[in-house]
């Protein structure tokens, strides 16, 4: 049985358009101009228990909207979401008992009190037996190394310490699914790494299904076997991160090292990815690669050259920046396989 099933889900936000100028704002008192934002368009996928999935895409792609739909915070305009046997928007307590949510830009800890107080409140809210609570508490605080801040008021914690405590607060009741919306936002590299390795260790061991959004590719690389790429509300790609390289396999990189400074006369072909005094990386269509290679090596004194597949980061950049050609993520995904 699937843990999460998302079936042709769309979400339209209606938002008021405010126009500039006094006259327009007076007019808007009477006639309100609404515009519809298609934040999700026909998104379908399913997850099995224990999967760790990265949700990536440029700003405004609809990642947070998708997460909110999955936790039942907002109602889809069309389509259905099923999590276990629940419809999230029914907001059943039995459903809420099984999910943990960390919204990186929101705070669930009590600001003026120490994190322990929030943890104990969660014990009451989720009705966690004393013994179970103590075990989880010990384990989580040790793994995340936050023992020393447990009795400090939350307002005096650093962002990293706070985020670790947020994670603990969301895991104490042993949820089966963990939703993480940008849990590493604004953290330094060391804290990011710690949280990352904690998640890997803990969630794999406990078989927790994790859905994670992050703008840091390292998070995704390290944690997620599978990625969902969102683009303008559509699910653009669903599969292994590594395999997206085949997505634009009709291109590759050619890297040259020249003996002298790169001559100005050189024909730069398709696109320069990197240029230095003596090295040049260009992107060429795979079909032309041989020809270009021959041309350059014969005309200039090249010390070294290599062909490279386009790195994941660059593929993503390419996907994100290209205007949206695909209207249905699922069809696209099936076409790739």
């Amino acid at each position: 049985m699937n843990t999460i099933t998302v079936d042709h889900v769309s979400k339209n936000y209606r938002r008021v358009r405010t126009e500039e100028g006094l006259w327009n704002s007076l007019k808007s008192l009477v006639f309100r101009n609404f515009e519809t934002v298609k934040a999700l368009e026909n998104v379908s996928f399913s997850l099995e228990q224990g999967e760790m999935v990265g949700l990536i895409g440029p700003n405004g792609a609809g990642k947070s909207t998708l997460i909110k739909t999955l936790c039942g915070l907002i109602h889809p305009s069309q389509g259905t979401v099923k999590v276990f046997d629940f419809k999230p928007t029914d907001k059943k307590n039995a459903f809420k008992q099984q999910i943990g949510v960390v919204l990186g830009q929101k705070n669930q800890l009590w600001w003026d009190l120490s994190p322990v107080e929030t943890f104990k409140l969660h014990q009451e809210i989720y009705n966690i037996p004393e013994e179970e609570f103590n075990i989880s508490f010990q384990e989580l605080t040790q793994l995340l190394r936050v023992e020393h801040v447990l009795t400090t008021p939350v307002r005096n914690l650093s962002l990293g310490e706070r985020m670790k405590c947020e994670l603990i607060a969301s895991l104490l009741h042993r949820p089966k699914i963990l939703f993480l919306d940008e849990p590493t936002i604004g953290l330094d590299i060391i804290s990011q790494k710690k949280i990352r390795s904690f998640l890997k260790q803990y969630c794999v061991e406990k078989k927790i299904t994790v859905i994670l959004t992050s703008h840091y590719m390292d998070d995704i690389h390290y944690l997620c076997d599978r990625v969902l790429i969102m683009k303008s509300g559509t699910l653009f790609y669903d599969g292994k991160l590594q395999s997206i390289q085949s997505f634009i396999s009709d291109y590759k990189y050619l890297r040259f090292t020249f003996k002298t400074v790169i001559p100005h006369t050189i024909n730069l072909y398709d696109q320069v990815e990197e240029i230095d005094r003596q090295t040049l990386v260009i992107r060429v269509a795979s079909a032309n690669a041989k020809e270009v290679l021959q041309h350059i090596t014969s005309c200039y004194s090249v010390v070294d050259y290599s062909e490279e597949r386009i790195p994941v980061q660059d593929v993503l950049e390419h996907i994100f920046s290209e205007p949206n050609k695909v209207s249905n993520g699922r069809d696209q995904h099936e076409a790739i396989q």
């Binding site: 909110k68 936790c71 039942g72 915070l73 907001k91 307590n93 809420k96 008992q97 999910i99 949510v101 919204l103 929101k106 705070n107 669930q108 809210i125 989720y126």
Partner: peptide, 12 residues
């Protein structure tokens, strides 16, 4: 500010 969300995902 959308902080209501943090209550809505809990059995509270």
């Amino acid at each position: 500010k959308g902080e209501l969300s943090k209550y809505l995902v809990k059995p509270l």
